[in-house]
Design a protein around this nucleic acid. Structure first.
Length: 202
DNA sequence: CACTGGATCGACT
DNA sequence: GTCGATCCAGTGG
């Protein structure tokens, strides 16, 4: 079942936890790609020093974060990689959830071609988690680029479905890669599914 | 306009 | 474990 707008209209911490175990669906070129969300980070916006929208900062890049919950915010990091965020809360309350790790459910062959330019059947077993166990990796595997910035997740191209979220053991830990953000870097705003192979970093 | 640094990854030791 | 790649967004002049 596709999740509707009201699901996203909550703060990023609650949305982040609720997203674990859900299925992300992306339809491209007659291909249907489905992945299970296993690792996320919450960015709480105006009061969060680690957030692009700290103090309500609005720029051409961050504009999508100010849309109502249930849109995509995609940005470029380190000049090379795209990161996918799910916008949370209400319009003009710029909170979001960064997707850091997903588990392939459908279309793993396309993901393997996108990442390593070779079919899934030729991947060594040890390489399989490497398909999607990181924010830059999963966007590459799915083929998500900044063209999808601002995409409405209640549409038919990119959306999230209820999935396999029963009996999930959630681990809370510090967010990654935000050393500049003073006390905010200590907050336990990263959530992942315990023992899942597609978590980027334990 | 010029400069600075990043919500990462992969190659290498 | 360390380190370089690579390019855009943000800032200040």
């Amino acid at each position: 079942m596709k999740l509707n707008r009201s699901f996203y209209k909550k703060n990023a911490l609650d949305l982040g936890k609720d997203l674990l175990g859900k299925y992300l669906v992306f339809n491209v070129h007659n291909n249907r790609l489905v992945v299970k969300i296993v690792e996320v980070e919450a960015y709480m916006g105006i009061k969060d020093k680690a957030s692009h929208t700290y103090k309500g900062k609005k720029t051409p890049r961050t504009e999508a974060m100010f849309m109502s919950g249930g849109h995509a915010y995609v940005y470029l990091i380190y000049g090379i990689y795209n990161c996918l965020n799910i916008v949370a809360s209400e319009k003009d309350n710029p909170q979001g959830v960064l997707i850091r790790g997903v588990e392939p459910i459908e279309g793993e062959n396309i993901m393997s071609l996108n990442r390593f330019n070779k079919p899934f059947s030729e991947l060594k077993k040890s390489k399989i988690p490497n398909l999607t166990n990181g924010p830059g990796k999963l966007t590459q595997a799915l083929g998500i680029t900044r063209e999808l910035n601002g995409e409405d997740l209640t549409g038919n191209k990119l959306y999230i479905c209820s999935g396999n979220e029963e009996n999930i053991d959630i681990i809370e830990s510090k967010r990654i890669g935000i050393d500049y953000s003073e006390e905010a870097k200590e907050f336990l705003w990263r959530f992942y599914i315990k023992d899942n192979k597609y978590v980027s970093y334990i």
